[in-house]
Write a protein that binds this DNA or RNA. Structure first.
Lengths: 202, 202
DNA sequence: CGCCTTAATGCAATTTATTTGCGTTAACGG
DNA sequence: CCGTTAACGCAAATAAATTGCATTAAGGCG
């Protein structure tokens, strides 16, 4: 009856796929600066109004596409030890994100004005990977680690330097972050003291 | 002769000031989502084409205005000790940046597509404050600290959580970051191993 | 399977934003 | 004070975004 809600199958899904594909293709061909909605719509074989109605504007479409591209395709590499897994993951993370396209994706994800959906998705991808690595370590009988601390000490600095482009996260720098994380682990780790994001008043 | 370059005085400066003021006023009145270039131009008493020619587009204008607003108006508070100065500064930083407007400014700064000018400016404001605090500490005969490490451990996590909006940087959380920073200071601090951002090839 | 409801789309008209050419104003260096 | 030209205003032209209405096709139900 009145409970139709969102449609997901058939044409709707095909169009979403076509628009995503067209956007990615154009991003690669002409670059983010020279892209616009009518261009994407034409390439995808739909009318611009369809894109505007489904995504709102270019920024939200780009954020959606970027979040999709940042979705991991595989679990982090299993090197046989927590130490190795963490190093491999963070080194790869830094390399991918500091590339031209990685930085572009990151900025598109954050530029979304309407909601934080895309940014939250990316954030949880990273956490999920770290949790996978921790679960794997625990399965081996190794000690685990604090995911939140890993995000703070390893991931956050990398993102900061990429976004504000004051420094380049070289492998040496990433290794130094790992050394710092190791130095803090085993002592009294800083616990996660914060509310989960709720209604922010001001 | 051929060395006229950019004009800075008189009308040009007045217009820049008027446009900045109009943008800030409209941001406060109608919000970032409902703003556009013609609206700003009318409020500032100039034609839209002037704004487009000087700033390029709305995103770059907003980035410029946001960077301007994020420019510190005063030195960080002098509490009498490095410990207190650092705590006061980071607590205030987290509070200002995590507010609705602070988060908006941060995103506007990062949304700038053309260059990283605005982002770099903001970044250097923070470093400058930390340097002020360090110089003050050294003047008192206290030990200094590594600015880069402070950015990595104190500032970066706060920015990360604000931008990706997965957590709220509460005062308790900020204090825990300060505790972590203290734990690392005095031991073998991680040195700044990275090149300054140069030509990135890929 | 066929019918019904309605979300999602296409199309076209309208509105709004952006770009551009050209004449005018005024900053800056003699 | 004068000349040069960057920066601006104005208005026309182009392009993008919005919107009303007709059409298509998901998904639920008998």
């Amino acid at each position: 009856m009145a409970r139709e809600m969102i449609r997901q199958g058939g044409r709707s899904a095909r169009i979403q796929q076509a628009v995503h594909a067209a956007t990615q293709a154009l991003l690669a061909e002409v670059g983010r600066a020279a892209i616009n909605v009518p261009m994407i719509a034409e390439r995808a074989g739909v009318t611009p109004s369809t894109v505007y109605r489904r995504w709102g504007d270019l920024a939200q479409l780009l954020a959606d596409v970027a979040a999709e591209r940042l979705r991991p395709v595989a679990d982090p590499e299993d090197t046989g030890s927590l130490e190795g897994d963490l190093r491999a993951f963070v080194l790869q993370y830094a390399e991918e994100m500091s590339s031209k396209v990685g930085r572009g994706l990151m900025r598109d994800v954050l530029a979304e004005t309407g909601s934080d959906a895309a940014a939250s998705r990316c954030c949880s991808y990273t956490s999920a990977h770290l949790e996978t690595i921790r679960a794997r370590a625990l399965g081996r009988g190794e000690a685990g680690f604090d995911i939140d601390a890993a995000v703070d000490i390893l991931i956050a600095p990398i993102c900061y330097h990429i976004l504000f482009s004051d420094r380049d996260p070289t492998p040496e720098y990433v290794l130094s972050l790992l050394a710092r994380f190791r130095a803090l682990t085993g002592e009294s780790p800083v616990r996660a003291i914060h509310r989960k994001k709720s209604a922010r008043v001001a």
